[in-house]
């Protein structure tokens, strides 16, 4: 407990004022970080086990004694998965990538455009629009599921990726997020550009967007992750194997009559590795972006 409260003091502030803090040997600090590493290892071990199991035989994966080194090491689970015509994992993967990518682009574009006047312009109806955005931010998405199913059905989008990309792109959160960023942006550059005779769109594109890139990237990443992880909606609006996204596909892999844990884990790994890679390159960016634009009310 003490060590955790200690950590509340950032080291930038230098060693703590209390006597034991100043005298604390480096060894003790090293031990603390070692403990952190061990904890992290336990924390991540389920993911490691998933990876390991995907290289096991069917029998070993269903065995009662967990093993951390596949014996024999085999790719048969992946082979089975990629060969099965009913579980086109690569198609699901492409679908997820397309849907999440386009959805993120749509969210960033529409939310940034909408947030700008809400942050920078005075006009009649502004309070109504912003009020609606805030209200819908508070409303849980569940009330939209049933009616949106009917709307999407009428638009002829059931069983198509459009149903995954477009409806969730109406992001009240995105507008709120971008507006917070714009409000905190110093306005001098924009004013200078306006006085130079640029119109509002030119100011937005040439002055604001370059400044807002970190926030837009952060929003894009959050939207991408949200869409990639979305489960309920794809499960119900996608019917055919070739239109499924990865989460919906994984659910169908978990067949009722025939559980093949090696294959399931292989599917889970295929669904994980790419986002993990993406994330490991961009995680700093997410955190820095969030702290810069701030989720401060």
């Amino acid at each position: 407990m003490t060590s955790i409260q200690d950590a509340a003091t950032p080291p930038v502030a230098g060693p703590g004022g209390a006597a034991d803090d100043t005298l604390r040997p480096a060894r003790r600090r090293a031990l603390r970080y070692l403990a952190l590493y061990l904890l992290a290892l336990v924390f991540v071990s389920p993911l490691l086990y998933m990876l390991v199991t995907s290289f096991k035989t069917r029998a070993e994966a269903a065995g009662t004694t967990p093993s951390w080194i596949p014996d024999p090491f085999t790719l048969q689970a992946y082979g089975h998965l990629l060969a099965a015509p009913d579980t086109p994992v690569l198609t699901w993967f492409a679908n997820s990538l397309i849907a999440a990518g386009l959805n993120a682009a749509l969210v960033v574009a529409t939310a940034s455009l909408a947030a700008y006047p809400l942050a920078r312009m005075e006009f009649r109806g502004k309070r109504v629009v912003f009020g609606l955005v805030i209200a819908m931010l508070m409303v849980p998405g569940v009330i939209l599921v049933i009616p949106n199913y009917l709307i999407v059905s009428e638009l002829g989008w059931l069983n198509s990726l459009t149903a995954i990309i477009v409806p969730t792109a109406a992001s009240a959160f995105g507008v709120f997020f971008m507006r917070q960023f714009f409000v905190n942006l110093p306005g001098e550059l924009e004013e200078a550009a306006l006085l130079d005779g640029a119109n509002r769109f030119q100011v937005f594109v040439q002055v604001v967007v370059p400044l807002a890139r970190p926030a837009m990237a952060t929003l894009a990443l959050l939207a991408f992750l949200t869409n990639w992880n979305d489960f309920l909606w794809p499960v119900y609006v996608l019917f055919s194997p070739e239109t499924r996204t990865l989460p919906a596909g994984l659910a169908t892999l978990q067949g009722a009559n025939q559980v093949r844990y090696d294959v399931l884990m292989a599917g889970a790994v295929i669904a994980s590795v790419p986002v993990m890679l993406l994330f490991s390159f961009l995680q700093r960016f997410i955190i820095e972006g969030v702290s810069r634009s701030g989720l401060k009310g």
Binding site: P85, D86, S240, P241, A251, T252, G255, A256
Partner: peptide
């Protein structure tokens, strides 16, 4: 073929 669990 499109083979999914019967419940689904």
């Amino acid at each position: 073929s499109n083979t999914v669990e019967w419940a689904e």
